[in-house]
Simulated assay, not measured.
Amino acid sequence: MSGPIIELADLRRSFVVRRKVGRLRRERTEVRAVDGISLRVEPGESVGYIGANGAGKSTTIKMLTGILVPTSGSVRTCGLDPVPQRRRLAAEIGVVFGQRSQLWWDLPLRDSFRVLGALHRLDAGVAHRRSAELVDRLDLERLLDTPVRQLSLGERMRGEVAAALLHRPRLLVLDEPTIGMDMISKERLRRFLVEQREASGTTLLLTTHDMSDIERLCDRVLVVDRGRLVHDGTLAGLAETVALDRVLVVDLPGPHPDLVVRDVRHVDSELDGQRQRLAFDPRRTTAARVLSDVSAQVEVVDLTLSEPAIEDVVQTLYARPTEEPVD
């Protein structure tokens, strides 16, 4: 099956919210959760879909998986119309929602995998081999006989990812997949997802508040704000669009007065000026030029360049007026 894995055209979803006004009257308000999103995701892409709480991410995912019907516009997932062809679509996608489980709460993890294999009508041998592969790669062996309700959140999330990949879906949708995990478990899961994508060509759509997940897993970033797509590009392009200050940290041979450099803001000094932080707008100057100007004044022993945190980039993007276009 060729064509895009996800194709949205002017997709919209509105909800009517009723709130009490006075003692006897209720007011109806239309809320646009998704407001005209158009995009394509091609096979094999790894896409981060990020936004603040209430921005429209979950509503979009529910429409592309067939849980919600769009108010208007169109959505096709794996070449299928998600609502009327929901059963066929279930064989093509795997979904992990951080706060909702597809595992059986009172069953051991092993039994959940067996039931899911049967639901997907997998050959018993194929299901067993695939389960064994996922159990090994996600370090689940010691958890197989533990009821799901007794697993920690991080352990359950690893089980959820294994369950979502059991039938080798073309599209894997992950909502906060590393929630509740320690740093080692997070990195192991990220490495596993990268390997799965390379081996199987799985398309990945990831929503998360952990920007490290985006940096490690995604080639493309979609930012949604108040139901509208406000950025579609790379992480580097997102940082350039927002253009937050970068910070050059220079270490000098000894104490030194605060440096004065053109197009640069002096942030602070330590050790009587032996270490100084200089912030600059990348649209006005470059790190090389700032370093050159500093070196003309004093010897530089060491330096580091701090890029803006992705959280700060996204927060700044959210703060833009909605009418301001973002390419």
Results as ranks from 00 to 15, higher is better:
G273L: 08
V96M: 03
V221A: 09
L204W: 04
L138W: 02
E270I: 00
R246A: 09
R228E: 11
M1R: 15
S46C: 13
E27N: 09
H128E: 14
R246W: 11
G117R: 03
V16F: 12
A279G: 05
V313R: 07
G125Q: 11
R28I: 02
R156S: 11
H167F: 05
R197A: 09
T202P: 07
P70W: 06
I6M: 11
R190L: 05
R100A: 07
Q315C: 09
R156E: 02
L303P: 09
L217K: 03
I37C: 09
G44C: 03
L252R: 01
R156L: 04
D106W: 06
E299Y: 07
E299F: 10
E299S: 12
L144D: 02
K20Y: 01
A127F: 08
R168E: 10
R130N: 10
E240P: 06
L143E: 00
I6G: 05
R114N: 05
T146K: 15
R277G: 09
E176D: 08
G154I: 03
K20C: 03
S112H: 01
H231A: 13
D106R: 07
D272C: 08
A243S: 15
V126D: 13
S58Y: 04
S38Y: 04
S200A: 07
S38K: 06
R197M: 05
D10P: 04
R32E: 15
V96C: 05
D293M: 13
R76P: 06
V264M: 07
A243I: 02
V135D: 01
E155A: 08
R170M: 02
L89V: 13
R137I: 05
E307I: 10
T60K: 12
Q274T: 09
P147M: 04
A90L: 11
A55R: 03
A309F: 15
D175L: 01
V260I: 11
S200E: 06
R277I: 05
T29P: 02
T241S: 13
V242T: 10
L217A: 13
G44M: 02
C218F: 03
T146A: 10
S46M: 09
A239Y: 05
T29K: 11
V250R: 03
G154Q: 01
L109P: 00
D327W: 07
L143R: 00
V313Q: 08
R12I: 05
G66K: 01
V17Q: 14
L165W: 08
G54Y: 07
G180W: 08
E198P: 07
L206R: 10
A287T: 14
H256R: 03
S2G: 08
S74G: 11
E311T: 14
D281C: 10
L244P: 04
R87N: 13
D263E: 09
S131W: 12
I5F: 09
H209Q: 15
R110E: 12
F192E: 09
W105I: 03
V41I: 15
E311F: 06
L151W: 07
K20H: 07
E155I: 09
V31I: 14
T234H: 15
G154N: 01
K57C: 04
L24H: 13
G51W: 02
R190C: 03
S46D: 08
R76F: 11
V300D: 12
L144I: 06
M157G: 00
L140A: 00
